[in-house]
Design a protein around this nucleic acid. Sequence first.
DNA 1: GTAAGTGCAAACGGTTTGCAGCCTC
DNA 2: GAGGCTGCAAACCGTTTGCACTTAC
Lengths: 135, 135
Amino acid sequence: MTSTSHPRQRTTRQRVAVSTLLAEAGGFRSAQDLHDALRARGVSVGMATVYRNLGLMAELGEVDTLVREDGETLYRRCSDVHHHHLICRQCGRAVEIDGPALEQWAIAVATEHGFSDVTHQLELFGRCATCQVAD
Amino acid sequence: MTSTSHPRQRTTRQRVAVSTLLAEAGGFRSAQDLHDALRARGVSVGMATVYRNLGLMAELGEVDTLVREDGETLYRRCSDVHHHHLICRQCGRAVEIDGPALEQWAIAVATEHGFSDVTHQLELFGRCATCQVAD
DNA sequence: GTAAGTGCAAACGGTTTGCAGCCTC
DNA sequence: GAGGCTGCAAACCGTTTGCACTTAC
């Protein structure tokens, strides 16, 4: 047991394409969005493959996921430490933010009400400087 | 203009049932969940009607909505002023919380990054005292 | 050569919608 | 009795899955 071969993961054309595009994107994008973008630049991939790769990357902590109010999931390449985002609701651009104060506040509030195992989800939405001008 | 009849809304058996059940529930419930509960207590309603009424109540600010990570929408009767929730991920019980400090922090962070029209969504999840004991 | 990865199309699950009939006001 | 409301079923839409085929290693 504990053989030398862990790396069960292959470098396919499609996987590289999805990963690369996401790296260039910089903001939160939907799977459909990414799929369209890939086809537009001539890369032929199936939706299923896009979903599978995004799911895999999410599991590996290579991308952050975020569920929009309408239920669609958005993906973004980013660091895997816990943090939140300030997202432009117009262009999708996202700024990573973290608030130590917030984390503490969350725990304090929860404990106060007798809750344990607390987690929280927070996202800020707004219009970035660029989009304000563009109007 | 400004006729005396604004109240375009009718008191139907189904509407009352949904509203009542939600009032009794106390926590966040899904539409399907509510539908099942209604049928279980002998009230015959269609899913579409449940959705339509929940949607209407949400618009009127009578209920809060919340999208779970899997995309399902949850509903809860509550006050319509801006606030957040501390939710038991086991039984759905929810405590309304509000944090003036948080609101200010959110605005400050956003402004700092050149964002305007800031809104935020925050939910805390944990296990309530009762569910901890029940284990 | 073997098993991970892919494509397609069908299945899924939550939600919405079109429309004929019902029932509140 | 007019129009909001309901029920049903079909349509939707994002996502997942089964399966035969391809391809990286």
